[in-house]
Design a protein around this nucleic acid. Structure first.
Length: 941
RNA sequence: GCUCGGGUGGCGGAAUUGGUAGACGCGUUGGACUUAAAAUCCAAUGGGCAGUAAUGCCCGUGCGGGUUCAAGUCCCGCCCCGAGUACCA
């Protein structure tokens, strides 16, 4: 007898050979684009957590095909990345080779789950045909600047014309802070190098000397979100290597130019509030003012950013970040030694342990003073590491009466505090309440913050002492990696100034190197390439030896970060074969944007930020028609592993059962979850043979003679030995069971630990479903008899519920609804075609293999994929209730909607039992009351 | 600390958004089939009290108040858990 999942392979083959899931760039059908975040193909293969999102999106894609849409549902690989390179360094194996192997394994695993991807559109970010266009987009960023007047990116070539015509006085750009102001005349007199340097300050991607997170263990720079803070200081997220702060020349992306639009356009996204909030916090917009404090020398001034200019009369000192350029000017000879020492200490602190848990304020007085812009009073200037060099101007005006941090600092160092709030006691702390009424503040006395801020800024602007300013936390993103396995920059250096390699020479392919490590003198791995220099005259890449600084120039040795390729891939799927452009205009105008995007929320401040930024840039340059590429996003929760730990008595090789561990000083050792059963008992024999150092381990067993482990829910990871991979489940129970089980675990948005407890229930459900269509001998049976009212009710109720649930991504309850239907129909012994055929289509998105087989057995041509989705008939949904007019106190008041078989006594009893409700009803005269015997369920007034 | 989620049986989780709380599944218990086990099928399963029984009553959605004919759902005040962020001026 056939088992329902014996046909998985047959249909997977059929789908592949017939290209069942091909998407068309021209179609009469409406379009729908369902996208998954593409995976990095790691050596560990897929684990059960990966497919969760893929299954969810696949169900939706298949559902939409049933609804008559031309569905684009592609898949590819984010195939540049660190692990392949680490492996290459260790083994000498080219990363392309390991990547290829890993991809093959991923593909095999995905195929076994029966996804409806259009594999003809597969893309890989490490494929030169793909990264050609990543490089091309980089060059467009290099060739554009951000015009604040038009609020969009514009070509640098136009900017140069403006400079030649009128200098930069009228240019409002998102550019470096230190950009000089010049006239057309001055511009023309700059030499090429000076011109290039100025243009650098405008480009959307530019070189900058930056303090970066340098990770020697990985030989590269990491973005802030790739670094985690631990007790031991900063370490890399991947591998846990120490990370240090270091100044390096880096390519930067001017994402800050788009800060306001990235923030504003969140409103048009149908994302979870949590995710949007994360991006809002990351962008961190705050409104305030820049205020100038003149130095005593009368020529320089110290500028600060504040959100509370209304508290200006409460300023009693200033604090600079130790790195601030004015520190050296302000420091007096007497304080020099102390200041130098503090600066050094701060630098070292940031190197080791920025997160020092001590909230105590430290700092030193510089000996210098600035003048209060309004009162002219002398204000002492301090330095402290609680002021960050990168935010605002790297300096603050301290108002101890109004800011708790300033208050703590003032209290620590005995700096006077001026009270500026009515009824506030400054000995207790700062008053940060914006409703407090100001005092001691001249023209602001009697006002609250909101009004006072406005008046103060107006006053400052009038007197040229300050101006309104919107400040963002968002920083420009570091775009360089000192790595081999990434996109090379299409850039060469002439006189130390970066120049673009002409677009027609793209792609600039990765050169062969003998070593994937940095060069002995510390340059990135591309420095090992023999052929890696640009012959400008002949426009080709030539040997390093030929660099003559006249016609042949060194190439950029950095490569692009992981997020480069993933920042635009969703557009490439629309037209992945195009070799004339990143994607054709016909294609992009047809598909426009992703209709449903599924992926993890861990990308909230990384990929989902950068890709929105690139999309907006492409939108500005007219390449894409939509400013947001993914309006609807579902975050699938991670599937967590249930790690197991054995307790080892410290300093010995003795292990103690978890229930006895309290009696000993122990440490927890990760144990492979495959060596532990459901009762948490460890197979000590297997454990002993697991690793060499455990050969002679001893075990202290509990009363039952068992050795128990501790369990803990953690992220699934190879190093925690808690990885469960989907292959075994597919092998044993079939792809459909895995698909439905993963959906049945709970809402897809929620993180949940993997356990196989419920697997049996899902398997039984599918088995029952299969049996509905077969007699006891396993022969297919469908009768053409007329269905009964009861059967129709079951069918239509289920259609409505399942469809509603799919639309809301409540797949777990959709599955429940199908389980109920199958149980009810099985109990009735239904074999009617009119009932069971629509049911095949209903289950098809969830269990496509079984659906195809049943569909064929029912006498249809494959594929069930394109069978129309059944529609439900309202008439059958309410059929088990009936309306009764009810007389109350002798007068007709309302109708009751009741189960068809309710007795009159039951109705009256139901109403009378709820005296209060009845009293309420007397006054209101409701239209309808829905009742079940004993209870009122709903009142329609 | 701040921001955003969330606390429902032994467990995963439902509840049409204010209307029978605990759907569906797991687990557990009992039964059928079997020489036996597995598999399968049937039944019971929030807690308490009363009754031989059918059944009836009371209590129950983290805690304390409130609104309402009616609260898991709304409001106020707490407690706990998870995620993000962290001296952002």
């Amino acid at each position: 007898m056939n088992r329902f999942h014996d046909f998985d392979g047959k249909w997977q083959k059929y789908w592949a050979e017939n290209k069942t899931f091909k998407a068309y760039n021209q179609s009469d059908k409406p379009k729908y684009y369902v996208l998954d975040m593409f995976p990095y193909p790691s050596g560990a293969g897929l684990h059960v957590g990966h497919p969760l999102g893929y299954i969810a999106s696949d169900i939706y894609a298949r559902y939409m095909r049933h609804k008559g849409y031309n569905v684009l549902h592609p898949m590819g690989y984010d195939s540049f990345g660190l692990p392949a390179e680490q492996y290459a360094i260790q083994t000498g194996q080219h990363p392309a080779v390991t990547t290829e192997q890993n991809i093959r394994r991923y593909r095999e695993q995905m195929d076994k789950i029966g996804f409806s991807f259009d594999w003809d559109r597969e893309i890989r970010t490490s494929d030169p045909k793909y990264y050609k266009w990543t490089q091309w987009i980089f060059l467009q960023l290099f060739k554009h600047w951000y015009n604040k007047k038009t609020d969009k990116a514009e070509p640098i070539a136009e900017l140069i014309k403006t400079f030649e015509r009128e200098g930069n006085v009228n240019v409002e750009a998102a550019a470096d802070e230190d950009t000089p102001v010049f006239t057309a005349e001055e511009w023309k007199n700059f030499d090429d190098k000076q011109k290039d340097e100025i243009l650098q300050k405008y480009r959307l991607t530019y070189l900058a000397e930056k303090e970066v997170n340098w990770c020697p263990g990985l030989g590269t720079v990491l973005a802030n979100d790739e670094v985690v803070a631990t007790d031991q200081g900063l370490v890399s997220e991947r591998g846990g290597y120490p990370v240090y702060k270091k100044k390096m020349k880096q390519w930067m992306m001017r994402i800050t130019a788009y800060a306001e639009r990235l923030l504003r356009d969140l409103d048009m996204l149908d994302w979870s509030e949590a995710l949007k909030e994360m991006q809002r916090n990351w962008i961190g917009r705050s409104e305030g003012a820049l205020v100038k404090f003149p130095l005593e020398n009368g020529k320089d001034y110290l500028e600060v950013f504040t959100t509370r200019p209304d508290t200006l009369f409460g300023v009693t000192f200033m604090v600079l970040a130790p790195e601030h350029p004015l520190v050296d000017i302000l420091t007096t000879p007497e304080h020099k030694a102390e200041v130098e020492q503090y600066k050094e200490q701060a630098a070292r602190k940031s190197e080791r342990e920025r997160l020092a848990e001590t909230k105590e304020k430290t700092g030193v007085f510089t000996g210098g003073y600035v003048l209060h812009p309004l009162t002219g009073e002398k204000i002492p200037v301090w330095i402290s590491d609680y002021v960050l060099p990168d935010y605002g101007t790297g300096a603050i005006m301290a108002v101890p009466a109004g800011d708790q941090r300033d208050w703590e600092f003032a209290t620590t160092f005995n700096i006077p505090i001026i009270n500026i709030f009515e009824g506030h006691d400054v000995s207790k702390g700062a008053n940060e309440n914006k409703d407090a009424v100001l005092t001691n503040s001249e023209f602001l006395n009697g006002l609250r913050a909101k009004e006072a801020i406005r008046r103060m800024i107006d006053e400052l602007e009038k007197r040229g002492l300050g101006r309104r300013k919107v400040q963002y936390k968002l920083r420009d993103a570091v775009f360089s990696r000192q790595r081999y396995w990434g996109e090379p920059f299409p850039i060469y250096y002439k006189n130390g100034i970066p120049h673009a390699i002409p677009e027609k020479h793209l792609p600039i392919e990765l050169p062969e190197v003998e070593q994937y490590k940095p060069t002995p003198d510390g340059r990135p791995p591309l420095g090992n390439a023999k052929v890696w220099a640009w012959d400008e005259k002949n426009e080709r890449i030539v040997s390093n030896d030929l660099i003559d600084r006249e016609t042949v120039f060194p190439m950029e040795l950095n490569t692009m970060p992981g997020w480069a390729g993933s920042s635009w891939y969703f557009n490439r799927y629309m037209d992945p074969w195009n070799d004339q452009a990143p994607f054709g205009q016909d294609a992009v105008n047809y598909w426009r944007k992703v209709d449903l995007y599924v992926g993890g929320s861990e990308h909230a401040t990384g990929h989902l930020m950068y890709s929105r930024f690139w999309q907006k840039f492409l939108y500005d340059t007219g390449l894409v028609p939509e400013p947001e590429y993914s309006v609807k996003l579902i975050n699938q929760g991670m599937i967590l592993g249930t790690s197991a730990f054995a307790r080892r008595i410290e300093g010995t090789n003795k292990f103690v059962s978890a229930d006895l561990a309290k009696e000993h000083k122990t440490q927890k050792i990760h144990v492979d979850v495959n060596m532990v059963n459901e009762r948490n008992e460890l197979d000590t024999e297997r454990f002993r043979n697991w690793r060499d150092d455990l050969r002679d381990a001893e075990f202290i067993l509990n009363d039952q003679g068992k050795f128990l482990v501790d369990r803990e829910v953690e992220k699934m990871s190879k190093s925690k030995y808690n990885v469960v991979n989907p292959d075994d489940i597919v092998e044993q129970y079939g792809a459909d069971t895995l698909r439905i089980y993963e959906m049945f675990l709970g809402p897809i948005q929620i993180a949940k630990p993997w356990n196989t407890a419920g697997l049996k229930g899902v398997y039984n459900f599918l088995k029952k479903f299969w049996k509905l269509y077969h007699d006891q001998d396993g022969n297919f049976r469908l009768s053409d008899a007329e269905p009964t009212e009861k059967e129709l009710q079951i069918l239509h109720k289920t259609i409505k519920k399942v469809e509603d649930d799919i639309r809301n991504f409540d797949y777990n309850t959709a599955v429940s609804a199908m389980m109920i239907a199958v149980n009810e129909l099985a109990a009735l012994g239904t074999d009617k075609r009119a009932i069971l055929e629509p049911l095949i289509v209903l289950i098809s998105p969830f269990a496509p293999h079984m659906a195809e087989e049943l569909w064929q057995r029912a006498g249809h041509e494959p594929s069930v994929e394109y069978a129309p989705y059944p529609t439900y008939d309202e008439r059958y949904l309410k059929a088990d209730t009936k309306e009764y007019p009810v007389a109350f106190n002798g007068k007709k008041r309302f109708t009751l909607e009741l189960p068809a078989d309710a007795t009159k006594e039951q109705i009256e009893q139901a109403v009378m039992q709820h005296e209060k409700t009845v009293k309420y009803l007397e006054g209101k005269t409701p239209k309808k009351v829905i009742v079940v015997p004993g209870r009122i369920v709903n009142i329609v007034v």
